[in-house]
Design a protein around this nucleic acid. Structure first.
Lengths: 287, 287
DNA sequence: TGTTTCTTGTAATTATGCTTACATTTACAG
DNA sequence: CTGTAAATGTAAGCATAATTACAAGAAACA
């Protein structure tokens, strides 16, 4: 069993208090260098008092801050003197060809290209639309992207009202369309390679006056023809499948952006929701 | 021209006195950690007096020992957070402070730290287990991670037989457990901050002889106590929510790894599946 | 060899860091 | 709503670290 400071912190997590957890977060954030300055600096960075730091390191098993720091130094030394620690790969102890490194390389490249290809004005327009509470939002996805659309729906529902998920795979989607009218927004996740049941849906929705936000791959789903806004993501992966990581990133970024624009409402809705899940705290501290 | 402490020492070498050279030797010996302790410790190690140290660091260009040490810390930090981190803002036409750039920064840091924290042997052990067709696989997730578990299940089902998804939120999960026996694998997605309905499930599954693979955040779900394998992911995000991008990446990497190990079977299963979806091509070219 | 300058350590001073004690606040149970 | 316990910060005191002042010793030059 290892006894790095990191390990000790995780192990003691249950016994840590609020301020201590906040501190733990900062220490782990860019571990281990963050803990190498003086206790005062660390306390400031974590926005807690110095005694909190002192107490915490004692709690996790050190005699005091100096001993804790000494341990960190030793860890750094071990990591630096390790010749493999050249850090030009993602996972230090894996060979370059290991799938962990290959996949990460590929995903990073997807993320780079995806973001480079996104027009900020378009992105902002999309988030403005979604932040407009007078417009209703429908969300749907395909076979592979279904989970993404569900994820988006889950979070969007907390941020604003009038958000509905349509299962494009079921036979129920025509019913949802009956309800659709001028000004509504339909968020469609669709990857070209897979089936495009979304095409009919998009066509009808547009005809009824709804506007479509399409999130698709670099080859672009045919739904783009009907979409008011199209956001393309790279999905290449060293695998028989594609990687939806870049799509997930974009999805979360949209959520964050809409939430920022609607912060007061979101906050209220989150509080209500939290009250419902009374037993546990669901959300992070409200910024 | 670089200005690392190392550089400065070498450059000033000619002007250094005997005791100072002795000190310089010790500093460079196992650079940079040797200089990270107190001035006293460094002086002792070099067998010179403390003022010699203070004078020397001033001579090579620092205002005092603390500044010198600060510089070392910065160097360590730079060395530990690898070159992959260097990027020229993601979306060029957006300001740095735009949510697109902020979010991507944070996600990249999550990915880096997640991969750095994953032990390759552990990862390989997990994928070996999942590639073993004699063992059945159950998958489950919590409120936020539910979609991830579904995604994993969806792909895993194509790769191998005997994969089942359990909705931990429904009341049906005890029934699934009835079916569980020695050698089965339970893949659990669980983020500490959110509710832990998975805990009971994990406890019972372990008691029945199943082995648990846990995918959790850096704070580690309490399920870890029962897990045969625990994989931690960073989920920090500049938002009221967390980011599951790193988890998604890990999930896809596991899928790719298992698929690679089981390629012949996977291929056969994919062909069959594709035949069922006759109209369109579902999968990418078989590599 | 005597004088001067440079080097280096010792000791004193000052600054900073760390810890302990205590008071305030917050959360929780009755 | 009140009392109790836990958490956390403030402030004081103590300890250590860093710098400065100074003096002893070594090397260089006359």
């Amino acid at each position: 069993m290892e006894n790095t400071a990191q390990e000790l912190i995780k192990r003691a997590y249950d016994t840590l208090t609020r301020a201590e957890r906040q501190l733990a977060g900062v220490i782990l954030e860019n571990y281990p260098t963050s803990g190498m300055g003086s206790i005062t600096r660390l306390a400031e960075k974590a926005d807690v008092s110095t005694p909190t730091v002192a107490r915490m390191v004692q709690k996790i098993g050190y005699s005091g801050f100096p001993e804790f720091q000494e341990a960190l130094r030793a860890e750094v030394e071990a990591a630096m003197s390790d010749p493999i620690a050249k850090h030009d790969t993602w996972s230090r102890d894996a060979p370059d060809a290991h799938i962990l490194n290959r996949f990460a390389d590929s995903v990073l490249s997807n993320i780079r290209q995806t973001l480079a290809g996104i027009d900020v004005a378009t992105f902002d327009r999309a988030t403005d639309m979604l932040a407009d509470k007078s417009r209703r939002v429908f969300v749907t996805g395909g076979r592979i992207t279904h989970t993404l659309s569900e994820y988006f729906h889950l979070h969007m529902q907390v941020i604003r009202r009038d958000v509905r998920h349509i299962r494009s795979t079921s036979n129920a989607w025509p019913h949802a369309l009956l309800d659709m009218e001028q000004g509504d927004i339909v968020v469609i996740y669709d990857i070209r390679r897979y089936e495009n049941s979304a095409l009919r849906l998009a066509e009808i929705a547009t005809a009824r006056g709804a506007e479509i936000i399409l999130i698709t791959d670099q080859w672009q789903s045919p739904v783009a023809a009907f979409a008011a806004i199209t956001l393309n993501c790279r999905i290449e992966a060293p695998s028989a499948w594609d990687s939806t990581v870049a799509m997930m990133l974009l999805t979360e970024t949209i959520i964050a952006a809409v939430q920022e624009k609607n912060w007061d409402d979101t906050r209220a809705r989150m509080s209500e929701l939290e009250a419902m899940f009374d037993r546990t705290r669901i959300f992070r501290k409200f910024v």
